[in-house]
Amino acid sequence: MLLLFVTIFVALSLGSSGMSMVDVWHILWLSLPFNDGASTMYSAGEIAIVTQIRLSRVLLGALVGASLALAGVGFQGVLRNPLADPYTLGVASGSSVGAAFIILMGYQMLLGLWTIPFVAFVTGMITIIGVIMLARHKGSMQIQTLVLAGVIIQSFLGSFVSLMVSLSDGVVNEILFWIMGSIAMKSWEHVYLLIPFVVVSLPIMMMYSRILNLLALGEREAAYLGVQVERSKFVMLMICTLLTAAAVSVSGVIGFVGLVVPHLLRLMVGPDYRLLVPLSAIGGAIYMIMADTVARLVLSPKDLPLGVVTALIGAPIFTYLLVKRNKKEGGVQSL
């Protein structure tokens, strides 16, 4: 939690506009409701950069990261599959197909700002059900089959998105932008859109964390201990898909967060979901803000695609921890 605040502090302070840290925080301080605004001391442009662009971007990053990491930890728990995350299961691709379709047809505002999240949720949900049905064989689900099914569906849907990109002319950039994954050029509206998803999902998932622990023993074992397995799985899959859809509709497809953050935490605090769920939300937020700050600064003033950064940072860290762990325990361990 402390680390989250430090990260937010650093991320807010750094930027390509050449303002000093002191200026940034002074503007933020003066913009608080009980002060009379910063307009007397700073130019309108400077104020806008801090309050309109940078602050909303950092908060949005935190929310997107928290959503994706929560979805990842939820999918991993419910499917008892270390490789499950919004990306590998194809849910993210499913959601982006819906989003891309809406953009292509120009229906973005049919239901207002909620159009894309809603459609993304529906197509994401259809995708996860499809993947699970594909992977299910005589009532049991093999880990490898599930991931295989996810990858197949993901590439199938990916080609759909590409098809839509080539079909459209004027809106090419907007769809491509989804595929790359970015939280640049967003506004406070998007922050407000994501907040309810995270605020509602987090407590529900924390209530379900003990059930996720029992599910780790096996579905039948959990049922013998009094868990309503099918209902719990359904609720968790719904929540995780909702979180994914919400995140994707705002930021596009950002890989690696949902996979890496829960695993990093698992290596640090163990397999207990009562810790993993809340820590994933915090960890996902930290990870995303860091990645986005790097994305903003490396080629400043140009932005790197965020998905590139999350993978570039995530993969080596993950590998390092995996190797270290295997050395310590003297053998290949299942995650």
Binding site: A216, L217, G218, L225, R266, G270, D272
Partner: peptide, 15 residues
């Protein structure tokens, strides 16, 4: 039970 990272006490508590 599967070979998990949970401790013996944690698993017994699950009962």
């Amino acid at each position: 039970l599967p070979a998990l990272g949970f401790t013996v006490r944690e698993v017994v508590e699950m009962g």
